[in-house]
């Protein structure tokens, strides 16, 4: 083994880590995110593609008595019982008609193995944006939507809110 390829020793290790971190930081800045955009109650939203398990036609949903109104019920997706939420209602969007939502977007959640289904009206597109194009959520954003807003991103003429649907698992019954 040549001396040039030998592992760094002592303070060299820290230097090597620092250099590696800088390189990773530069890579991160240049990274691109794939976003899926969709319509809920007439509003366009986005989620990271890697946070989505699947988008599928809305299966038959069985309502469960004694649950909050935003919880539509449960659906059988490929043999798994998946909870389904009325995303429009949960986000406090006006004009929500979850019963007619034709699609379910099943979001990945750390604590819910099957993921959580969200009713959506339409799947619009999948776009790739540089990670640094993501802006913080609009400061004036209030209400339930603020809880799920991970940021905003300009997509064409739209200012689209990026949702962090993994936070669905943290929603309390009081929502």
């Amino acid at each position: 083994m040549s001396q040039e390829t030998a592992a760094p020793q002592g303070s060299d290790v820290l230097g090597a880590f620092a250099a590696q971190a800088r390189v990773q930081g530069q890579k991160a800045a240049a990274e691109a995110w794939q976003l899926m955009t969709f319509l809920v109650a007439g509003t366009r939203f986005a989620v990271r593609v890697d946070a989505v398990r699947i988008v599928a036609p809305m299966p038959r949903v069985a309502a469960v008595p004694g649950t909050p109104p935003w919880l539509l019920g449960v659906a059988n997706h490929r043999g798994e019982i998946v909870p389904v939420v009325d995303l429009a209602r949960l986000l406090g969007l006006p004009g929500a008609r979850a019963e007619t939502s034709p699609f379910v977007l099943i979001a990945l959640c750390d604590t819910v193995p099957t993921g959580i289904g969200c009713s959506i009206d339409a799947l619009l597109d999948i776009v790739t944006v540089p990670a640094d194009a993501l802006q913080p959520p609009i400061p004036t954003l209030q209400g339930p939507l603020a809880r799920f807003a991970q940021g905003t991103v300009h997509l064409g003429a739209d200012l689209v809110t990026l949702l962090h649907l993994g936070r669905l698992a943290d929603v309390g019954a009081e929502a």
């Binding site: 019920g73 959580i116 019954a173």
Partner: peptide, 9 residues
């Protein structure tokens, strides 16, 4: 499912 159970009274 556990998620529903948490929200079912």
């Amino acid at each position: 499912p556990g998620y529903i159970r948490e929200h079912c009274r």
